[in-house]
Design a protein around this nucleic acid. Structure first.
Lengths: 162, 162
DNA sequence: AGCCTTTCATGGATCGTCTCGACCGCAAAA
DNA sequence: TTTTGCGGTCGAGACGATCCATGAAAGGCT
C-alpha cells in the first residue's frame, strides 16, 4: 500500500465508474499496472464492494432519527437475538454498540415522524428494551461514504533515498 | 417509479457492477428497456452516484466516535462558518443538526483514541464550541448504504384492476 | 560487480458490455 | 378509433476490461 494505491482509492471512493485508463492517467501510471493494483485491492478486500448511492428524498426516506438504547440484559445470548432483530429492519442503516452511558445507538431512516412511530412500535413489539430515547435530525449537513485515507500505513517506496 | 424501478434500485444498491443484462434478467425485463430505466433514474437524480466502499480496518480507520455538540450562538452566520470548518475534516463522515438537547451530532472515523484526541484538539483550535461530548463505538454491528425502498410512492401500474 | 526481484511501460489481441437507433406490437388513454 | 407510452427484438458500433508478451529501470543481496 503506497501513495499510488491511496490515490486510486481516493478516486474510486468518489466515483467508481471511472475507467481504468482514466484512473491511470490521473495517478500517473499506465493502464496495465493500474488495473493490476485495482485487482489486488479488491482481492485483498480493501475495496469491499461497489454500490449505487440513492437520493434519500427521491425514495421518500429523508428523515434520520438517532435512537439511543439502554438495556438490562448484557448476556451474549440476548445480544445475538437483539442484533438479529434490529438488523432485519431495513430502516436501520447503522447500528453500534457503545461505551458509556448508552448501550446501543441506531441510525434509522424513515419518511416522517409518523413512519418513525410505526417503526418504533414494530420494534418494541419484537423485543423488550429498558429505555429508548429518540433524537431527530433536522438537517443532514454532511454525509459521505469516503473514509479518511490519511491514516493508511504506507509501505516503503522506491525513490525515497537521496 | 414502479415496482420494476424499485427492484432495479434494490439491486444497484447492493452491487453496482451488475451488467444491465443481468439486472434485466433478475427484474424480468429485456435489456434495452431496463437500460432505459436506469438511464432515467440517473438523469432524475434518484441514483446519485456510484462509489467504492472500503474496508475501514484495511485503511486504519476502524474506530467510530459520535460527538455531541452544544453551542451558544445560533446565528446563520455562525452555522455557516461552523459547517465549513467541520466539513473540511475528512474524519467527519456524517454531520447532523439535531433537535432537542444536543445541537449537532458528528460521526468521526479515526484509527484509535489517540488519533481522536489529536482530531479533537485540531477541531477546538479552529472554532469555539460551548460543550462537546464524545461517545465511542465499541462495535459496528450494522452499517449499510442501502436505504429502505419500502416507502417509495409507486405510480399506478397496468394490470392492477380486477 | 553481477544477479534477482519487482514493477513499470508499451503494444496488441480478444472479448464482453454499453449504448443507442430502428422498428414492431400491445394496451391503456383520449 | 387514434394516439401515446411502454416493452420486445435485432443489430451495429464504440468502448473498456482483461490478459499476454516483451523490454527497461531500479533496488536489494551475495
Amino acid at each position: 500500500m503506497d501513495r499510488l494505491d491511496r490515490k486510486i482509492l481516493r478516486l474510486l471512493q468518489e466515483d467508481s465508474t471511472l475507467a481504468v485508463a482514466e484512473i491511470a492517467k490521473k495517478v500517473g501510471l499506465s493502464t496495465t499496472p493500474c488495473w493490476r493494483r485495482i485487482q489486488k485491492l479488491e482481492e485483498d478486500g480493501v475495496i469491499q464492494r461497489r454500490v449505487a448511492l440513492l437520493d434519500p428524498a427521491a425514495i421518500n426516506a429523508k428523515v434520520t432519527v438517532f435512537v439511543s438504547i439502554r438495556t438490562n440484559s448484557h448476556s451474549n445470548e440476548w445480544l445475538k437475538r437483539f442484533s438479529e432483530v434490529i438488523s432485519e429492519f431495513p430502516e436501520v442503516v447503522e447500528f453500534y454498540r457503545m461505551s458509556g452511558d448508552v448501550d446501543y445507538l441506531l441510525r434509522v431512516v424513515v419518511p416522517d415522524i409518523a413512519a418513525y412511530d410505526a417503526f418504533y412500535k414494530r420494534l418494541i413489539a419484537k423485543i423488550e428494551i429498558r429505555d429508548v430515547s429518540s433524537s431527530f435530525a433536522m438537517e443532514q449537513i454532511k454525509y459521505t461514504t469516503q473514509l479518511p485515507l490519511d491514516y493508511i500505513q504506507l509501505a516503503k517506496e522506491p525513490g525515497s533515498s537521496s
